[in-house]
Design a protein around this nucleic acid. Structure first.
Length: 423
RNA sequence: CGGGGCGUAGCACAGUGGUAGUGCGCUCGGUUCGGGACCGAGAGGCCGCAGGUUCAAUCCCUGUCGCCCCGACCA
């Protein structure tokens, strides 16, 4: 992707009304555009990262045995009435039709998925089963805030599992918990599992996945020596207490909740009268679980967790592109042509191996501005091709995260990028 | 939804009761060329919107809409 033709450029100045790091950097870097409070358009750079995160989530949900579907965002009022949630869920957007009929804009999908699965599953032999979707969700938040961390419209992965025995459910729940940790790790995040209340959803304990950052909304008590962490809303331990698992002193921290898993019990299967025929020929109750990941929020959390004063620092697994290729032109037209040819070569060579670069081929822009843009956009590798580097038949390689630079022979650049990305 | 702050050029901001400015960005010309250079010439504004006060309102008053922050809320 040539920077000169990339839609949506970086901005030298930060938006005046963006306080949170993710809002400022994502907007300034041309990753998102705010349409209204809590509602964002995803631009080419941002969308590529969003898609990479989605792909990781898909792979991990598939690995858990989940099957992807896509349910409706526009949902019938009757389903919400039947589950008893039409009047009790205050963030539910209720949409009036010109016919006088009302609809819900889905904040989640238990009310759709339960009757859906019910219509296809009559026997215990069809279970267990897990289906998931990655879909836009709507929540009528009283106060949208913190950029993409709490929006009124956002992308969420929601998976629902169906079981005939509690043992089977619990085994899957534990497997899902591990799958979640792997998902976040692949996105470059060190997420902690915390116990928390299940809200009005369920009386049972649920688990949240928290990424520690000062921008977080949730107050946690956690251990820095082991993996113990707890949301203060259930408050069985407090700051300074010994860690229940390793005895180290617990500390207070702020976290962003990037995922959660719930034991739904029979809350929805009962509401939708969903039971199956068991092996004994009798009706058997269904136990459900639900498993959410805020996809757009996750992108924001990555920015909060990985940036510096110059810009974003994308983990290579989710970076929109692996390489930011910077062409620095030369005075002498003949030299300039050779430098450009060398940079063009690298651009083509990388693309041929599946490592598409952002190629800053602009002719009339000075080095400093190009470097500032590269730092802001935060791709893992910056490659500079200039008269200086060409004199050594090389490109300058700079690691965005460590700041380390080295020269890489032109002939080896593509191979080195391949090695780096595979490592 | 309660409290606070802010709405002026694409962006960031000054400013004044007498119909508007700076920086960046943009267009054209020239000089520059490894960390956001410089010179010259341009384009670009219903001063958020609606009322009110006034000879005159971008400015003062009221309302309203929007944005951000704190709080409450958050499956």
């Amino acid at each position: 992707m040539r920077y000169s033709s990339l839609f949506a450029k970086t901005s030298k100045t930060a938006p005046h009304d963006a306080d949170s790091v993710n809002a400022r950097l994502l907007v300034q870097g041309g990753f998102v555009d705010r349409v209204m409070a809590g509602v964002y358009t995803w631009l080419p750079l941002g969308l590529r990262t969003l898609r990479k995160v989605e792909t990781i989530i898909r792979e991990e949900m598939d690995a858990l045995g989940g099957q992807e579907i896509l349910m409706t965002a526009l949902q019938p009022k009757e389903n919400w009435v039947q589950s008893g949630r039409w009047d009790s869920v205050d963030v539910l957007f209720k949409i009036p039709s010109q016919t006088g009929k009302e609809y819900a804009l889905g904040p989640t999908a238990e009310d759709i998925v339960t009757p859906l699965v019910k219509s296809f599953v009559q026997s215990y032999k069809d279970l267990p089963l897990a289906v998931y979707q990655i879909q836009t969700k709507f929540r009528d938040e009283l106060r949208a805030k913190s950029g993409v961390l709490r929006g009124r419209e956002f992308l969420m992965k929601d998976m629902y599992s169906f079981h005939t025995t509690r043992e089977d459910f619990e085994a899957f729940y534990e497997k899902a918990k591990q799958g979640y940790l792997k998902t976040f790790a692949r996105c470059g995040l060190d997420a902690k599992v915390t116990e928390s209340s299940g809200g009005s959803f369920t009386k049972k304990v649920s688990h949240e996945f928290q990424v520690e950052t000062p921008a977080g909304e949730d107050a946690l008590v956690m251990c820095r020596k082991c993996h113990f962490a707890q949301n203060t809303e259930i408050a069985t331990v407090k700051e300074g207490d010994p860690c229940p698992s390793c005895k180290a002193a617990l500390v207070a921290a702020k976290g962003i909740e990037v995922g959660n898993i719930f034991d739904l019990g029979d809350r929805f299967s009962k509401a939708f009268e969903f039971a199956v025929v068991g092996s004994n020929g009798e009706k058997t109750d269904i136990i459900m679980g639900c498993y959410g990941i805020g996809v757009t929020r996750l992108v924001g959390a990555i920015v909060e967790a990985s940036h510096d004063d110059k810009g974003m620092i994308w983990p290579k697994t989710v970076a929109p592109f692996p390489v930011h290729l910077v062409l620095l032109s030369a005075k002498d037209p003949a030299v300039a042509a050779r430098v450009r040819a060398a940079a063009d070569d690298i651009d083509r060579g990388l693309a041929a191996e599946g490592f598409e670069a952002v190629y800053d081929d602009r002719d009339d822009v000075r080095a400093g501005e190009k470097f500032a843009d590269a730092d802001l956009i935060g791709l893992p590798i910056r490659l500079v091709v200039s008269e200086k580097s060409l004199a050594q038949d090389a490109a300058e390689w700079k690691d965005r995260k460590t700041g380390e630079t080295r020269l890489v022979a032109l002939a080896k650049v593509v191979e080195e990028v391949g090695k780096y990305m595979a490592a």
